[in-house]
């Protein structure tokens, strides 16, 4: 007896109508995975981890909203964005793993906090929970997706064909994320006194973490032609944020900047206190059963 028996006829054998695939190799099929000649492989791996960890850790945060969003439609949208970012993370960690000889799960689950290279904006608690609310979450999404969209649009020209292909695929996703965040920013900024106040507070919460997004890291300098220098994105991203905040009737927060720790921040593996708890939760089961297969 086939195990689908009664409903097999309903399902058929085509999986194309499922909204979200769970594989990712197909997405990059046909892409040349050879390393470009002369590329600094160690730096390439570090760079893939940076961009991959940004997506992985932010996805982990966004998925905390699952079953907690203000409306069912929004629950679906936030899960959708989390899934897109998780997909980007998997492709980037896999690319890093081709240099480091480790797979995506070894990289996601078996690295310690100091080895994660995501920016702080991805990891801080912006709600649901004590660290924020839906307004804070939208503020982070707006900043993050505006920045990453600008980054990916340049990364399409990367000398690494895999990074270029990942950027090409991610671009449409990120454009949707930014659009979604911008629409909510306008709704909340314009909606009621309370929503305006909360959205403004959300921006204030995330603003100290904006500066880090545009700080050039030595890894990026070593990868000229492969990596994007984030400093080059600043004016474009500032322009986008300004346009959205204007449309929403919101004020751009004063340029406060979270201080670095002995000169280091997320790209150097130095994180906020929130990161340890996030990783403890994310990694505990994988680490508890060494040798298990999932």
């Amino acid at each position: 007896m086939s195990f689908d028996n009664a409903y097999e006829s309903l399902l058929g054998h085509e999986d194309a109508h499922w909204a979200f695939g769970t594989g990712f190799s197909e997405a990059l099929s046909g892409v040349n995975r050879e390393f470009p000649p002369g590329v600094d492989r160690e730096a390439l791996a570090a760079y893939c981890l940076m961009l991959g960890d940004d997506a992985l850790i932010f996805s982990q945060r966004l998925s905390e909203w699952c079953s907690r969003a203000p409306e069912l439609e929004e629950d679906i949208a936030l899960a959708n964005i989390a899934l897109d970012l998780l997909g980007q993370a998997r492709m980037l960690l896999t690319r890093a793993g081709e240099v480091l000889d480790r797979d995506e799960d070894q990289l996601a689950y078996l690295r310690d906090e100091r080895e994660f290279r995501n920016v702080h904006l991805a990891e801080i608690d912006c709600g649901p929970g004590p660290g924020g609310d839906f307004g804070t979450t939208i503020a982070r999404l707006l900043v993050f997706s505006s920045w990453r969209l600008a980054l990916f649009s340049r990364l399409r020209g990367s000398a690494d064909p895999v990074l270029a292909a990942i950027a090409e695929k991610g671009l449409k996703e990120l454009a949707y994320h930014r659009d979604h965040a911008a629409q909510w920013t306008v709704r909340l900024g314009d909606g009621t006194d309370e929503s305006h106040r909360r959205m403004q507070a959300g921006l204030a919460r995330v603003w100290p973490f904006v500066d880090e997004l545009f700080a050039t890291h030595p890894v990026e300098t070593r990868l000229a032609g492969v990596a994007v220098d984030p400093a080059s994105l600043r004016s474009e991203v500032d322009g986008v944020l300004e346009a959205v905040l204007n449309a929403a009737g919101l004020t751009r927060p004063a340029d406060t900047r979270a201080a670095r720790v002995a000169g280091m921040a997320g790209r150097d593996g130095v994180h906020t206190e929130a990161m340890g708890y996030l990783l403890a939760e994310m990694q505990h089961l994988h680490r508890s059963l060494p040798g298990a297969v999932w």
Partner: peptide, 10 residues
């Protein structure tokens, strides 16, 4: 949040 592989999480 605790899914033990990225594929299972997705």
């Amino acid at each position: 949040s605790r899914a033990p592989s990225l594929r299972r999480k997705a």
